[in-house]
Design a protein around this nucleic acid. Sequence first.
DNA 1: CTGTTCTTTTGATCTGCATCAAGGATGCCA
DNA 2: TGGCATCCTTGATGCAGATCAAAAGAACAG
Lengths: 248, 248
Amino acid sequence: MLDEETKAVPRDCGDCPIRHRAVCARCEADELESLDQIKYYRSFEAGQTVIWAGDKMDFVGSVVSGIATLTQTMEDGRTQMVGLLLPSDFVGRPGRDEAAYDVVATSDMVMCCFRKKPFEELMVHTPHIAQRLLEMTLDELDAAREWMLVLGRKTAREKIASLLSIIARRDASLKLTKPTGSMVFDLPLTREAMADYLGLTLETVSRQISALKRDGVIQLEGKRHITVPDFDRLMEEAGDDNDGGMLA
Amino acid sequence: MLDEETKAVPRDCGDCPIRHRAVCARCEADELESLDQIKYYRSFEAGQTVIWAGDKMDFVGSVVSGIATLTQTMEDGRTQMVGLLLPSDFVGRPGRDEAAYDVVATSDMVMCCFRKKPFEELMVHTPHIAQRLLEMTLDELDAAREWMLVLGRKTAREKIASLLSIIARRDASLKLTKPTGSMVFDLPLTREAMADYLGLTLETVSRQISALKRDGVIQLEGKRHITVPDFDRLMEEAGDDNDGGMLA
DNA sequence: CTGTTCTTTTGATCTGCATCAAGGATGCCA
DNA sequence: TGGCATCCTTGATGCAGATCAAAAGAACAG
């Protein structure tokens, strides 16, 4: 069915758009050289599955461009997204042979892959890689825990607002701007994918987006292009406290 | 209000009950020696708060005995537990100054603490510590993601069954037995804490526990002592698939 | 043993979101 | 240009779990 085409995309680490954010961020020139020797690029089309949960996984890698999702599925088909992978995010786990989750490209995507075995060996001699990976994993753990609050305790409206504020913030950080005032961005997810992320149905997602639009929290152009006139207002709707203390 | 009593509990690393599971698990004798120099013990009583989210945190550490919870709270009081800390689990994050979550001891608890600064310095020269911490953090990330599925997609009954099966499994692993057949253990949490973990109300928790008891999935003695006559049955109720493939 | 507090159970009712159902918009391919 | 698929919106209805309320154990101090 799916044509798992693998296409080489030669590139120099020096020009790499994720050079200073990915797992290689802290590497010196010589370390980068070693990584360069075991790396290869893979391209995926929107909708293509990178790997299925339970499949043997003999590589790890970084998202270079595009977006992928990490999802878990129960036997009866209920699915929950457990991660949204953006450029520089790491895929796979050193020391594990099988993929723990389904990984699906939701847009055209390019990954910088390393064969797992050589990567693991390299990690032993290259503390900068292990250090960076630890830092990234701790960040992901924080993100997962923040998401647990969203899933466990927020209302549908708050969930949507939380997702929008996260996407807006991430978009701002790519553009190296602060998330304030008016913001414009595109939704990288379908309503169904949003529902899977938020633990809702796609109908509820659609209704709540309409409600936020009706209430002036967001403006919509087409289905995907979003304008947030007031980011603080969005944060309020998300139930997050941005005025949080810190009066030291 | 809370009497944050700090009591010394001198102990030798060689005798430590979490020696081979904690962040120090991979350390050689000399590395252990270095850790030993910067460690100190703190005891907490049941109900005592270890640290509040946002507070300055100048230590990291491991739970030696007892149980603690990691929780997040919204301004209006809604709370979500984001982690259950058992013996050998790590508390705190190297490279971060403030606690991200409330940490509360739910039973009498002893922690082995390291001052953060010296610990961070030690990590640089002691790859075994960083390696083990990475491994533990990856495990926690997996656990958090499994919990996202529970919070986002499972019914109240499945949530309760999931929590019980996790506690049962953990209990089995402490006793070095396989989780099968009949199992007996104590709930380390109040109904309210269970509710905070599962994103439910305590009334719903109580009702579902009664229902599981009525249906013979569990037996109760007092409020806390649980017997699971058939672990596979419990797994089914949790919606987990334990017969999952693996026919290689 | 009695009053107090904390935890838990159980009942009655309400409601937010799921479910079921239909139709609109957009884009692609023949 | 029309057929088809994909994605999205909106309406009607139902139900799982929240909320409100009361009371029953259990632990403990006096």
